[in-house]
Design a protein around this nucleic acid. Sequence first.
DNA 1: CTGGGGAGGGGGCCC
DNA 2: GGGGCCCCCTCCCCA
Length: 483
Amino acid sequence: MEISSHQSHLLEQLNEQRKQDLFCDCNILVEGKVFKAHRNVLFASSGYFKMLLSQSSKETSQPTIATFEVFSPETFMVILDFVYSGILSLTGQNVIEVMSAASYLQMTDILNVCKTFIKSSLDINEKEKDHYLSLSAKSASTDPTPARPALYRSRRKAKSNPRRSCSIPDEKPNGNENSWSSYSSYLSSQVILQRAETQLSKRGRKQGSTRKRRKHLGLSQSRELGGCKPDRAERAGASDPTHISQGGEEAEFDAENDVDQDDFGYHPGAEAAAKRWSVAQLEQELSRTPEFMELKAEELYTSMPTILGVMSSWNEGDLPRMRFKCPFCTHTVKRRADLKRHLRCHTGERPYPCEACGKRFTRLEHLRNHFQTIHQAGKLICRKCKRHVTELTGCVVQQGTRRYRLCHKCLAEANFDSIPEDFNPSEHSPVSSTGNKRPRWALEEEQKSDEETVEEEPYNLVVRHNNEDIPDEVKEKVKPNLR
DNA sequence: CTGGGGAGGGGGCCC
DNA sequence: GGGGCCCCCTCCCCA
C-alpha cells in the first residue's frame, strides 16, 4: 500500500531540518554567503554534487564545504529552495542565471523548467507583439500618440505578475531517470529554445540577409546557427565570471535581441533600441573578425578553470567519471584538449586559414582536407565519370582556385581549352604567412615548392597537364585572405 | 520537388 | 597536449 503524501511529507521534514540547521552536513559557500544543506539531498538532486560528494565521501565525519563563485547567493537560494520543496521561484530577472547555475550544477529538471519559462515568455510576447501590431495599425490613422503607451502598458502588464512558481511535475517514467536519461529530452527542449531565440533575434535583423552576410564573412553556415553559434552560446548560459563577463553578455543579449531583461518583453519601434541595434550590429561585425575571435578564445583558454564541470555516468552503482564540461553547452568531454577543441565552435576561433582561398578552419585536418580536395585535386577520381584516374590516365582541371581531375575521355568530351601546366600538389602552401599557425606538413611542402601561386580565375577553366612547367603568367600572387 | 554527392564541421579516440 | 585518423551529421548544390 502506497501512501501518496509520504514523499511530500518527507521533503517537508527535510526542509524543516535544513531551516533549523538540523543534521546539515554540507556547507555551501556562495560568494561569501553560507548555505547549509544535507549531503544526501544534494547528492540526489545535482550531478555536480553527486560527483563532488562521491569524491569526498570517504571523510564523512567532517562537513563538506563547497564554494561557488559562478552564480549569486540569490540564485543558489532559488535552487536550494527547489531542491527542498520542489517549487522553483522563477522570475524574468533570475531565469537566465538560474538556468546557468542549473547547467553548472547539472540539474536538468530545472534547466527544462527554465527553458519552458523562457519559451512561454516568448510565446506571450509574440501574442503581445501581434496585439501591438494590430493596435498600431488601427491607431495609425487616428491616434497621434500610438505606439509607446500601448507598448508600455503591455510591458507593465507583463511586469505586474513577474513571478511564477513552477512546480516540476513528477515525470520520471522509469526509476533510473537521472541526468543522462533526461538528457535527450533536455536537448530536444534546447532545440525548441534555440528556435525561439533565433526567431526572436531575427526581429532586429534584416530578414533573409543573415546567411548571405555570413557567407560574405566566410563563416560556417550550419552549426553556428544552431547550438554552437558563438553569440547564442554565450547568452545561453555561462554565468561563470571567469569566462566572460556577465554584464557584457547580458548587454549583448539585450542589445542583440531587443529583449527586456526583466520580462523578455518586446519593444517594436523603440528608437533607443534601434540605436543600440546599430551599435550592437557593429560590435557583432567586429566580433566576427579572426583577430577578435582569437583574442576571445585566448582569454577563454587562459581563464579556463581546471575542472569546468563533472558529469556522472550513474549506471548501476558506478562511480561518476570525471569529465570536462563545456561552460556554454551541455557537452562534456574526457580530455581537456578535446574541450579546447570543442570551445572553438563557441568562440569562433579559426586559426587555420587557407592561403589559396582565404577560408579559415577550426582544425588543421579540415584545412588539409579542404586544400587537398579543393586546391590540389587530391582525389584520384574523374569528377565526371567517377572512375579512378591516375597521373597517366587523367589530368587536373582548374576552375578558379578549385582543381579536380578528369580522365582523358571526359576531358575530350568536355572540350575544354587546355593550358599546359605542371601539376604539383605541393606547389602551394595553404597556410597564410600572416602569423597564423603553420602546420608541419605545410612547411614541408613549402620547402619543396618554389612559392608558386595560382591566379584566381573564378570563371575560367584551366587544364593542367602533368610534368610541364607552369607559364609565368599563371604564377601570380595568391589571393589575400578574405578574413 | 527530390535524391545523391561534395564539402564542411564536430566528436571520439589513438599515437 | 597536439596531431591525426575515422566516423558521422548537416548543409548546399545540382541533376
